[in-house]
Amino acid sequence: MVKDNSVSSVVLDIVIYVFLILLMIVILYPIIYILSVSLSSSDAFNAGKVVLWPVTGSGSFGLDFEAYKEIITGRTVPMSFLQSVINTLLYTAISLAFTTTLAYPLSRSKDRVPFHGFITKIIVFTMFFTAGMIPVYLIVQKLGLLNTRWSMILPAAISTYNLVVMRSFFESVPVELEEAAFIDGANELTIFAKIILPLSKAALATVGLFYGVYMWNQWFSAMLYLSDRAKDLYPLQYIIRQIVMENQLAAEAAAAGELNTVQVSTASLKYATLFISILPMLCVYPFIQKYFVKGVMVGSVKG
């Protein structure tokens, strides 16, 4: 590659660098701010002294781990964190299993799969039309899944979008590989497990990440399907939602004339909980990035 040292090229490089640095600041600053507030005293936050780094009550730089201590010694956040981890791992595994086993036959020739077109149309139909909240709730209820972990996992086990991504990737695997395996005596399951899946790590990582992030951020299904009797199953995002809503709820309660009913957490506690919630995804992304770039390009270029 020849380096272009012309003035216009250098200027362009500078513009690009400045733009990227600004973009990096825009992305990083909220995270740094959340971390700083979580490590600052509440008085410093209320006084508007926290801008970039953690500040103590006196206004000087300093770390206050009180919020993290409160979280760790409490029961709610650690328990919900654990539930989120379990849900995310289980959901990702189950969803990947269901998605790949459905995507694989749909990626093969119509001659090998009966009702191929019909099944494909039915699946794509669900991308545009859903049953709605109440019918889904009734199904979950009738299946006895209310107040269980499975109510959050099973109804969303297959995402049609992810299924299409996965099918597109499987289609790019040469059919000759399967034919060779057939000749060597392998059956469909063996081919799928020993040839197709090992060749699909990029797609698996990408779709797995989509599924993982979805479940990690999930609170709505917990709100719908879990009651107080299953509060130990509340995921972290649901707890965070409650904490974040405290201010608004306190204002509403006050407006309704209620007596000190809503307890509002300190800002540092709120931000510490938020930081804990984003930490796992921050840690996971770098390790999956190499697959991710390749995986999201699936189906974008043909030939």
């Binding site: 608004q248 709820l249 309704a256």
Partner: peptide, 30 residues
């Protein structure tokens, strides 16, 4: 008891009536 977090009370109670899964007694409504 069916104790519902305050912010979700309206959604969940409406849903419970819609699906016929309501409690005998409802408190906290407007």
């Amino acid at each position: 008891y069916d104790r519902i977090p305050r912010g979700d009370w309206e959604t969940k109670t409406n849903l419970s009536y819609a699906v016929g899964n309501e409690a005998d007694i409802t408190t906290g409504g407007k």
